[in-house]
Computed example of a mutant assay.
Amino acid sequence: SDERQWTWMDEGLNTFLQFLAQAEWQQKWSSGRGKPKGITGYMASTIQRPIMTNSESIHQFGNNAYSKPATALNVLRETVLGRELFDFAFKEYSERWMYKRPEPADFFRTMEDASGVDLDWFWRGWFYTTNNVDLAMKSLRLYQIDTKDPDIEKPIKKEKREEEEAKDLIDLRNKPLPKLVDENRDLLDFYNKFDPLDVTQSDRREYNDFLKSLEPEELKLLSLRRKFYVIEIENIGGLVSPVILDITYANGKKGTMRIPAEIWKRNTRTVKKLVIAKKEITQIEIDPMLETADTDRNNNYWPPRPIESRFQLQKRKKGKNPMQKAKEEENRSKEQQNEKKKKSSEKDSS
């Protein structure tokens, strides 16, 4: 390869292969380059240059030509293609271009040809831009099927109304005020006792008529007791990436959902994913196994977590104003003069 033009094709590929060799050499080998979590600081910085930059214009040689290409290939191997398919394609590239002088396009084309996977989005993001992976949990919405059954739906609405009224500031402050209808019962009418959320026989008849109008498949769908969650994810960093979600349910069970990068095909800024669950979702984490080089993990959680940090207690040194400093300097000068006079007198007396 042309190392002067495309340094990463030599140093980056060698760093990647060294990373693989070290993994087979010793358990927990301390490898400084290749792991996604090790490149996040550089990828989030403003001093980046695209990997596809002439070596004479690179800002940080080590990160640009060694670490980032090696990390990109690890992400491609572990998360995008999988080890088996990546290794097959990489071996094919090695055999096709043995003793030749490949250029970046030859590498990109061979990896796609051998794997049978369109990787344009991957090369574009990792090699031609300075975007970074920063996926964030934007929102989580819960939808449930409205059964239309008044004996189910109206009590739910009434309970919600009572919860809201119980914490309404104005209602709470008005509660002890004397009411006119308590003093004069003749002021009461039909609407003082009417509650639209009370179940009536008319409501039940309408519901039964509604059920009779449904087809068997529609009845089955109506009785489906599931929770429909819509997870909205924001792509803050701009680099398209697979989405890996670790989902925890109310019963303590966990599940991992792996969504291909093609989910960003229509909108590269925000996407929504529907999750149908039997149990309530209590926690969601993006990239739980640190495999996509996400540069900001503080926004990877639902519900959000506090941003942890540490600070040191320091004792403040008491400063002196200019007058005090000048006085000290004056005293120091006098002491030096007195010391000289003392030494001079001792010398004369001897």
Rank of each mutant, 00 (worst) to 15 (best):
S115Y: 11
D106C: 11
W123A: 05
Y99H: 10
S115I: 06
P104G: 04
S115D: 04
D106W: 15
K100Q: 10
E112N: 08
T130D: 00
L119S: 04
W126C: 00
D146E: 10
S115P: 01
P102S: 04
D146Y: 15
L142E: 03
W123Q: 00
D113T: 10
E112G: 08
L140P: 08
L135A: 00
S115L: 00
D106Q: 13
F127E: 05
R101T: 14
P102V: 08
W126Q: 02
E112Y: 12
A105Q: 07
P102I: 06
A114V: 08
G116H: 03
M111V: 02
E112W: 14
N132K: 13
W123L: 08
L142M: 02
R109E: 03
P102R: 01
S115N: 02
F107T: 04
L119V: 00
S139P: 13
R109Q: 09
S115F: 11
M137A: 00
P104V: 10
S115T: 05
V117I: 15
Q144F: 12
T129I: 11
V133E: 07
D118Y: 12
N131P: 04
D113H: 13
T147I: 06
R109V: 00
L119K: 06
N132P: 05
D113F: 13
T110Q: 00
A136Y: 13
V117S: 01
F107L: 10
L119R: 01
N131I: 02
T129F: 10
D118N: 15
R141D: 12
P102F: 09
D118C: 11
V133M: 04
D134H: 12
L140C: 09
W123I: 10
W121Q: 09
S139W: 11
P104T: 00
T110W: 05
D134V: 05
I145C: 07
